[in-house]
Design a protein around this nucleic acid. Structure first.
Lengths: 112, 112
DNA sequence: CATATAGTTAGGCCTATGACTAACCAACCC
DNA sequence: GGGTTGGTTAGTCATAGGCCTAACTATATG
């Protein structure tokens, strides 16, 4: 059982690539085998596999093999960790977002 | 006015470094000049400045210079973009998180 | 004006990342 | 058994990332 503590570094790093985010979006619908996922991207298989490995190693996805088919699915724990980091700071952000809203509203008024 | 569309790639990439997250956490309290931020890290100034540049370029922070002092502050827009990406997929995650909870609860029961 | 302070620029260095091809293993399936 | 399909491993390559030192610019301040 790979039960390492979740490394935010790795999770955010993984999210920093559009291919990997797209894979996650696809997986958020339902699990899928490698070939089906790979078909969505114009990339050599081994290159694509690396992305899958990144997702799995940082805990965003999980896979299991049946016969010769490996199926990937989302793994919520890492996402949860990333969310928690954001949530931890959300209160402060929201103050600032509200300030932004106020500002934008003021702009709107000034605008007419 | 640098008003580029926010690149999720860059925002998540920026969040993938512990130094940069720590800077954001510090900035979430209040704006601070370079020297004050730099003092928190055991790193040569130019190296640290690169992190500040990354934060500014991806839109997570903003800076302005008064005299010889450059002050940094949070910039909500990029954070909002990252949050929106997460929010867009949150519903699905939460289903899965609930499934996880169910699973864990089942485990607990089996456990006694 | 001389010196200290706050940042900045330039350049080098090493590792990590992301992509590729080629060759390989392991099921399936006729 | 032999070919086909699905995935994996190995090895290469170029670029980007993160760190450093040294040298520089621009503002204070005595």
């Amino acid at each position: 059982m790979t039960n390492q503590p979740i490394q935010l570094d790795d999770v955010f790093h993984a999210l920093g690539d559009p291919t990997r985010r797209a894979v996650l979006e696809r997986l958020s619908k339902k699990p899928a085998p490698v070939s089906e996922l790979a078909a969505l991207f114009d990339m050599a298989l081994p290159s694509f596999m690396q992305h899958l490995n990144v997702l799995e190693e940082c805990g965003l996805a999980r896979s299991s093999k049946a016969g010769r088919v490996r199926t990937y699915q989302l793994e919520p724990k890492a996402l949860r960790a990333a969310e928690q980091w954001m949530a931890k700071h959300r209160a402060i952000w929201e103050v600032r977002l509200n300030q932004l809203d106020d500002y934008l509203n003021k702009m709107k008024e000034t605008d007419r």
